[in-house]
Design a protein around this nucleic acid. Sequence first.
DNA 1: AAATTAAGCAACCGCCGGGCT
DNA 2: TAGCCCGGCGGTTGCTTAATT
Length: 260
Amino acid sequence: MVRAPCCDKMGLKKGPWTPEEDQILISYIIKYGHANWRALPKQAGLLRCGKSCRLRWINYLRPDIKRGNFSREEEETIINLHQMLGNRWSAIAARLPGRTDNEIKNVWHTHLKKRLKNSHGSNKSASKTTSSTTSKASINNQSESEPSSSEFSSLTDTSVATVETKDHVQDMMNMIKSEAMEFSESFPEIDESLWWETLSAENSGNPFEFSDAGNELQHQSSFTSSDSVEFYSSSSIDDHMDFWYDLFISNGGSPELPEF
DNA sequence: AAATTAAGCAACCGCCGGGCT
DNA sequence: TAGCCCGGCGGTTGCTTAATT
């Protein structure tokens, strides 16, 4: 039996998501949830396959996504968990709240794997310091194992920056949360976390994205026309409140909470 | 300043397993 | 039990940006 592809590619869009598509997806999920990913794009009016919608939601739009650099603690956690679990990214992600398997996978391949390799190589080269071998390979190995390599230092630096910005973000989020909770009392059927996570993205280009104060936001490539979209141009708590309130009401204000 | 290379990351692909009929 | 559907997972690709030559 030849199984049909996961989705009919005919007429379905691929590639980076636009803000408009994001908005449609978010609106739909807020209203109806995502009980059936396969049927979702058709019902929502998106020219995407269900898998693409699911991936976009899970990895990027979900309100409880934690954006920004990984802290040193998170990196250590990933390394430790990877030693125990191997490439079971979803299992690792389950132990890192707010992080996605895809994100962890990327971090592993771009940073942590090299770091481990370097530290391993460093140990090896240290144990071979008596060796008089000066082959190209050993030279490369030594330079790679240099602890102040840009790759390593960038990890250290960014983790420091992340700690600093985390405090800022935490303060901001506490403040926003209190406002969100106050506001949500008017809409008790709405889960607190929806408002709180939504609003926590204040100052961010993406309402779900945590602002990494002082750092240029990553992942902007798919938001090329954000300026023209109200959703992405809101810059204050009130704007976000208004936007989500309007969105909620315009969507019929379903008493059924979507599952995030 | 332009060209080339490397790094980072969002998104896609194909497979697998659970649940339903 | 077999067949099918669907969600989830891990590997991989390809685009964008940054760094280097």
